[in-house]
Amino acid sequence: MTAPDTEQRRRWMAVLARARAEEIAGLLAGLPPLPEPERLRPPETGLVMVRGRMGGDGGPFNLGEMTVTRCAVRLGDAVGHAYVAGRDKRQAELAALLDAALQDPARRDALLAGVIAPLAQRQQAARDAEARKAAATRVEFFAMQTTR
């Protein structure tokens, strides 16, 4: 195993961005502790301007901003980054730590199985439950008898 490909890294970053700090910390608690990372950029809250497209598929326009918290740490040779929606600094710090740790082939499989997979599963379950609620509100049309 070598460095992760970008697509794989994007996937775990996406899962961590949607997870609450307590969830991540809870799952990490069951694994061997990670070393203390060096803080390259302490957690910092700022804004990202969210863009839409005119008419849904035209050129971009600025819709409005959203709060985002970022953090960067170093663990050995790997630099871990986090950019997560909202203002939870603890979440950003844990996400950055995990992004760094997951880049280490020696740690990756255990962390994918112990943290990322369970988080992804919960997130998928919540999405599925919502999709089923939406499905219950889908209209089934039926034709009326034609009157003459």
Binding site: E44, T45, G46, L47, V48, M49, V50, R51, G52, R53, G56, D57, P60, N62, L63, E65, M66, T67, V68, R70, Y83, R127, E130, A131, A134
Partner: peptide, 17 residues
């Protein structure tokens, strides 16, 4: 708050409805 930048344009065709 500082601004980190701008997002990629949202893809509303891929919305979770």
């Amino acid at each position: 708050l500082p601004r980190f930048g701008a997002s990629e344009p949202l893809d509303t065709a891929r919305m979770r409805l």
